[in-house]
Each structure stands twice: as C-alpha cells, then as structure tokens.
Simulated scan of single mutants.
Amino acid sequence: MADFLLIHGSCHGAWCWRDVLPELQARGHTARAIDLPSHGEDATPYAQVMLHDYAQAIINAIDTPVYLVGHSMAGFPITLAAQLAPEKITRLIYLCAYAAQDGKSLVDMRLEAPRQPLMHAINKTDDGLAFTVDPNKTAEVFYHDCPEGTVDYANARLCPQTIAPQATPITLGPRAASVPRSYIRCDDDRTIPPEYQRTMTQDWPEADVYAMPTGHSPFFADPAGLADILDRIAKG
C-alpha cells in the first residue's frame, strides 16, 4: 500500500491530521504528519523561517518515496520539495491548496483570486513578520462545518504564521513538473474560494481533480471521506 506524508497549512501543525491518520491506516496505508518549522511542537522562531526551510523539512522527513499531501499554503513547500528532490515523491496531492506556479509567490496567487474571504480574520503580529487568525473568526473561515469541539481544539493550537515564505516567489522547472499531481477541491471553502481552486486546475486532466462538499478543513469535517479519496488516488 501507499506511504502518505501529510503537511499542514498556515497557522496549523501536524495536530490537524489527528482524525485522518487512523482512517488511512485502517485502509492499509502508512501515514504520518510533521510540523513545519515554527509550527506545532517545532520551536524555531518564526522570524527565522523561509520557504526553503519548509521544503527542506519535508525532504528531511522522507526516506522512501511518499504521496505528499499539502493543505492550503502547503501547496508551495510541497511543490518546492518536488523541485529539489523529485525522486522522493510518488505524487503531489494538493488539498484545497495553492498549486504553486513558477515565478509567483503565494501572496501573488492569493491576490489573483476573485475574493479574499480570509483577510477580515487576519491580524498581523506587532513586529509585522507574521499573522494570526482571530480566534473569534476561526469557526467562520476554517471550521464552520466541523464537529462540535473542533474550534476549541484548534484555537488552543493555532500559531502565528510567518509571512516571508508566503511572500517569496517560487522557482520551478522540469524536476517539479516530472512529479504526478492530483488536486482535491473543497466546494464550500471559505478561505480559498472554490472558484479559484477551479481556476488553478482548469488545464489539469479531469481524472486528477477531485471534489469534496466541505469547507477548508476536510480533515475535521469529513476525515473518512478524505481518506477515501486519498485511497483512490493511491490505487490509481
């Protein structure tokens, strides 16, 4: 069966995959999640973290080739990991994520979207180097369709998100392009507009694009359904 490595998005950590890991394991797969630098239990100061550090942490966590799943902003570091070490990745799987494009930063791509539904919930840190999400608005933007208790569980663990990795343009080439890819769109997403997720994948083969009826956090809203799609992708 397949080996999955799950990468969280902005302000989150490996903790957000809590319900998905056992679902994948129940389907016969190996699955694990890591904290990117300055997230979760990783104590790296956020002011020291760049996009390359995210990608290198992913590469360092891989011994044998994995199905590499990136949620939301993690679309950028998983793509850079594919550029740096394509031999370590069986397939890239973007989960309501930014499908990174050569020469653009995540900020560039976010601004291409027709709407900016997350920005009203964002607060910059006093040093201007990171942002946090207003805990009174996380239910609205991240977890509106998630089970009771999710908001409290997540709010206790969300961390500042360093801005530099998201403002850094990515340089891609044939190495990244050589890695197969799939996309899982979330059609009730209130963070990355679903219509922009469609735009990012408009020239992808139809067989490589999947959809879920959830919001931005399918790992909490429908972990079994997400695991089913990941299982289908791994089985080809």
Rank of each mutant, 00 (worst) to 15 (best):
R198W: 04
P193A: 15
H39P: 02
I78Q: 13
Q25K: 11
N60M: 04
R91M: 14
G173V: 12
Q202S: 13
I78K: 05
I233D: 06
V49K: 07
I184R: 06
I78G: 01
A100R: 05
D35N: 09
G9N: 08
Y67R: 02
L6V: 00
Q101L: 12
L172F: 10
P65D: 09
D145L: 07
A164P: 10
M200A: 09
V66K: 07
P165N: 09
I59E: 03
V141H: 04
D222N: 08
C16D: 03
D63N: 12
I7E: 02
T64W: 06
R115W: 04
I93G: 12
Y94T: 09
G28Y: 01
V209C: 14
V49G: 07
D189I: 10
A176I: 04
A121C: 07
V141K: 11
S217V: 10
P147E: 01
A33T: 12
G236E: 07
P194W: 14
T64V: 07
L24P: 11
A176S: 12
P117Y: 06
P37E: 05
P135A: 10
D3C: 02
E23R: 14
M1E: 03
Q48C: 11
A2L: 00
I122Y: 08
P180L: 01
L226P: 01
A97V: 08
L111V: 06
A85Y: 06
H12Q: 14
P86N: 06
Y143G: 05
C186K: 01
D42S: 06
S105T: 04
D108H: 09
H29M: 15
F142T: 04
I229H: 00
W204K: 13
T191D: 12
I170N: 01
D35P: 03
R185V: 02
N123E: 15
W204C: 08
G40N: 09
C146T: 10
L106Q: 11
A47L: 02
D53K: 10
T132R: 07
M212G: 11
M119Y: 11
I7N: 02
L129Q: 15
D53T: 07
K124F: 11
